[in-house]
């Protein structure tokens, strides 16, 4: 009996270790796997050419990722500008000014909305945002636009990020000790002064992290953006012109990537680029969160 117990203990222990080690090795495996597939293109071109060249002619073997990186950055920044202040103020209202009941109702709702698949946000974007941009917003600025544009991509991304960032911000604000708030109020500060000088200041690392992780999420989002952004190769300053972010490039061309030489390795390079950028952003901002959680 004892032997069976000991052996099963050993076996389960190995199984547990294997599971954990596999998970911890996963980021390395992903990095190595993608690098392995992207190696032909990294070997054949200089990294500066790949990242900063605007020449994208896969048929001629020219792969400049600048237009894609530009579009990705454009929609991400746009999404951030649109959603970050909104989320910050909404989180302040829900945790500081609003009734406690409202927060209790909203928390599960936000949680559930964060789980809605991105393709549904994409459907909404096609139904609402694209026509709205084409018919109302673009004419307002005297521009003609099909609606499938960087602006639409940014708006849809912003809406997708709202539940995600709001959730994190509420968590950050809830960890601030009540005593601190009371101390500030007892010195005669108004509610808003308390928010300004205590909540924002004390929660600053958390707020920064929530924003950072929101950016990372927006940067890597694929399907919803792909559906509304137009997917045209172009570097344009106007938000009403179409763009072509990195994830959309990968998703759109998987069908034909085997038929053109080096094309598959170019797409894997795009995936590697996304992976590295997002992993770095994540590791950086998660570090903040973990530092604050430990205290």
């Amino acid at each position: 009996m004892n032997r069976i117990r000991r052996i099963s203990d050993l076996l389960v222990n190995i199984w547990m270790r294997a599971g954990l080690y596999f998970l911890l090795a996963l980021p390395v495996l992903i990095g190595v796997g993608l690098y392995w597939k992207a190696a032909p293109i990294i070997g054949g071109h200089s990294l500066r050419d790949l990242l900063f060249s605007r020449q994208w002619f896969p048929m001629k073997g020219e792969f400049g990722f600048m237009p894609f990186i530009y579009s990705s950055a454009y929609v991400t920044v746009l999404a951030f500008i649109l959603s970050a202040p909104l989320c910050l103020f909404a989180a302040i209202y829900l945790t500081q000014f609003g009734k406690h009941r409202l927060l209790q109702v909203m928390l599960p709702v936000i949680d559930i909305l964060a789980g809605i698949p991105s393709v549904v946000y994409g459907v909404w974007g096609v139904l609402v945002i694209v026509p709205a941009v084409a018919e109302y917003v673009a004419p307002l600025f005297g521009v003609a636009s099909s609606g499938y544009s960087l602006l639409s991509g940014g708006i849809v991304l912003a809406v997708m990020c709202i539940p995600y960032m709001l959730n994190m911000l509420i968590e950050v604000f809830q960890t601030i000790p009540v005593g601190m708030k009371e101390a500030s109020l007892s010195l005669g500060a108004t509610h808003w002064e308390m928010v300004k000088h205590v909540i924002i200041r004390k929660g600053f690392p958390g707020i920064l992290s929530a924003f950072g992780l929101g950016i990372a999420k927006a940067f890597g989002e694929t399907i919803a953006v792909l559906m509304v952004v137009g997917n045209t190769l172009d570097i344009s300053v106007s938000p009403f012109s179409p763009g072509y972010p990195l994830p959309a490039l990968i998703a759109n061309n998987y069908g034909e990537m085997m038929s053109i030489p080096d094309y598959d390795s170019a797409l894997m390079f795009a995936a590697l680029l996304l992976f590295v950028i997002i992993l770095i952003i994540n590791l950086f901002f998660r570090y903040f969160i973990h530092q604050t959680e430990k205290i």
Binding site: L20, L23, L24, L26, P27, L29, I30, G33, L34, W36, K37, L213, A216, K217, F219, G220, E221, T222, P247, I250, A251, Y254, L267, M268, A271, L274, F275, I278, L279, I281, N282, L283, R286, Y287, I289, H290
Partner: peptide, 23 residues
């Protein structure tokens, strides 16, 4: 470990897709 797993959570699904394709 929690820190690393959290970072892994943030990797976009298209990257997993590309990696799955390699695999």
């Amino acid at each position: 470990i929690r820190y690393l797993l959290d970072a892994l959570w943030g990797i976009p699904s298209i990257v997993y897709g590309a990696f799955g394709f390699t695999l």
